[in-house]
Write a protein that binds this DNA or RNA. Sequence first.
DNA 1: ATCTCCAAATTGGTATACCACATACCACAA
DNA 2: TTGTGGTATGTGGTATACCAATTTGGAGAT
Lengths: 253, 253
Amino acid sequence: MLNANIRSTVYQMITNLIVGKMKLQPIVSNLTLKDRVYDRLREAIVEMNIYQADADLRLDERTMAEQLQVSRTPLREALTRLERDGLIEIRARKGVFVVRRTLEEILEMIVAWAALESMAARLATDVASDADLRNLRKHALRHSESSANADLSEYSDANIKFHQMILDMSGCALLAEMADGLFVHMHAVRRRALEENDRASRSVVDHMGIIEALEARDADLTAQLVREHTMRLHNHVRRVWSKFENRRESIAG
Amino acid sequence: MLNANIRSTVYQMITNLIVGKMKLQPIVSNLTLKDRVYDRLREAIVEMNIYQADADLRLDERTMAEQLQVSRTPLREALTRLERDGLIEIRARKGVFVVRRTLEEILEMIVAWAALESMAARLATDVASDADLRNLRKHALRHSESSANADLSEYSDANIKFHQMILDMSGCALLAEMADGLFVHMHAVRRRALEENDRASRSVVDHMGIIEALEARDADLTAQLVREHTMRLHNHVRRVWSKFENRRESIAG
DNA sequence: ATCTCCAAATTGGTATACCACATACCACAA
DNA sequence: TTGTGGTATGTGGTATACCAATTTGGAGAT
């Protein structure tokens, strides 16, 4: 099958050659089965509601291999990567399990996130272009309404986007990448955190303050505001989740 | 062989039981071949001088499998993890290559490190015990001489330890863990960075300032000093490495 | 009814065979 | 000599078979 695809692609190229107009192509994708399995599993795990009390955290290699129509070998290599991501845990002869993060771990992730984004914001005051800042302000204004309209689903996405924009504006790709790695683990947290009383409106105010500090090119102030903003989420999550943990019930349900 | 090891371990346990002196069992290590191969490869790669002009960055699966006396399967799973760590790159049907970080990437790692350790130091001003701080000061004093004695090898290790202590004192394991992940990539950088004129003595001064800020429990000042200290390394590396990059020579030789 | 113990099923771990693509090499022609 | 094409070989990718440890369930004893 793959062979046939390559053959037909090459055939197409030769045909183009004969006709005389050569354009060249990027040829075949380098994506291997392992990569595709990894992407699909990662997506599935992130979307899954792992904090449901009755959630099935157990993954069976042979079942998955059958569903994905691949052998266990590339599947296991994908699982190895997911394990390194901290999304699953592979216990020898016991099974593969999606990991449930503890409240403590979630809080630590938020702290790390605060550290990274705060530094990103600091750098951004120096390297971000005026156009970047205009973009950021535009984005924040456009979506500030959705928080008032209680359209929290939309605002949640816009909120995430806001923070990603700051990370990108730092010009330091690694900061953004590392923060992304943290976000993945907080999928179940992010939206819920907003769905609480006046969190959203407070968030809008914070964002405006950050934008103004950025526009003023005030590195220290910007870094401080971003850090405090994220640490407010930290405090909020600690307060709210404690209740759930104590009741030993679903956290994200 | 592995089987024999397990057998002898179990035999030991039974013997202990019969003799009457029960000690409890760590049982067999849950370390699988994959894990052990991963550890050994990681160590080997980190120790390897990848920036030598004539360094062989190519790794051959079958050769390694033979040397390690394991099949390619666990080896490849270890390689998958190393790839996710960013230490190697697996190119389909081309080979496995140890990645050479560019100057740009090294600089970004230092920035991220600064972000993490600065936050760690900030937290430490709040949660570190007085005993922790005494320990830190003792460590710094003990090794400040080696910088003067030009015993840079020893001071380099002590220097790393100093920063790890701060990360640990934050009480946030994730910060320390993420910083560790960055350190691995900078093995070839760290020592060299010190082996330059007065870097070491300047470093000692910085450290003392950080300790004093910690002891004063001044969060903002501590965070600032740690950040500035690491960013000085950033500037230093940028200046020094640029020469090497231009000459296209060894960086860590 | 309950407990003990063993055998079969389950499950991840490992070894091995084979495939398709990449590369190097070489024969041969211009 | 130089360039072209084919072919042999090497490499990572994948599939599959088997292994060892664990779990499970039920037969048999108490």
